[in-house]
Amino acid sequence: MLEIKNLQVDLEEEEKTILKGVDLTIGEGEVHAIMGPNGSGKSTTSYVLSGKDGYEVTGGSATLYGEDLLEMEPEERAAAGLFLAFQYPVEIPGVGNMTFLRTAVNAQRKARGEEELSAGDFLKLVREKAKALKIDADMLKRPVNVGFSGGEKKRNEILQMAMLEPKMCVLDETDSGLDVDAMKLVAEGVNALRDGKRSFLVITHYQRLLDHIKPDVVHIMADGKIVKSGGPELALEVENNGYADILAEVA
């Protein structure tokens, strides 16, 4: 399980506090959603968890199944079971998607002291998972995300998630830039990974993604803190009334 306690984070480049004491506990197999207005610190939370440069943790802690995430390099966090689906997946010319996937899978296995997957086993696995996400052979051969449409990029994120089999998946605005059909496909990919053990943190602006990926708990984040938590009905409330009422209520 993921435990975030009183997490406080500044931007490294400028004196600006982004997270002002985030508390969040996601149990095994649970799906939590974070919603909140722009600039509330949702994406920053995902970056700090995964170890992106440019942020300074000034207080608090974040652990995954007891392991201190904040002390680890990004690759160690990944090997420990954390996965971030990017809001804007990076295009990498010259690196084949398949090569990338295989290198990542085997790097994690190696880091965990497991045997690397053979080329044949890997190929079998990736084909099977890609098929479910309607990712064709061509997309696997092409350089990572290069020339992919918005929907293809997000599906490719979910494919990576499916291949890496993380314990804790963080989805950063995975619905942004997706049409309804693409969102459904992505949501199906995520739901297929729900196995009662794997946990999810879904960051989104809109309730509609949560129609497809049903959360156990919804949190509202504002000004670097989680200001309200509740059931799925909280997302509906946001959808109908916006954030103003909730923010006024907790202020």
Binding site: K52, E75, A104, A107, A111
Partner: peptide, 30 residues
């Protein structure tokens, strides 16, 4: 080497030095 690209690769579990090599090779590969 682009920091965002490097972060993307390391966030998938690829050690930094290996990720850097992949990017160098991709660059020369062109």
């Amino acid at each position: 080497i682009d920091d965002d690209t490097l972060f993307y690769l390391t966030s998938r579990g690829i050690p930094r030095s290996q990720a850097q090599d992949m990017l160098v090779l991709a660059f020369l590969g062109e």
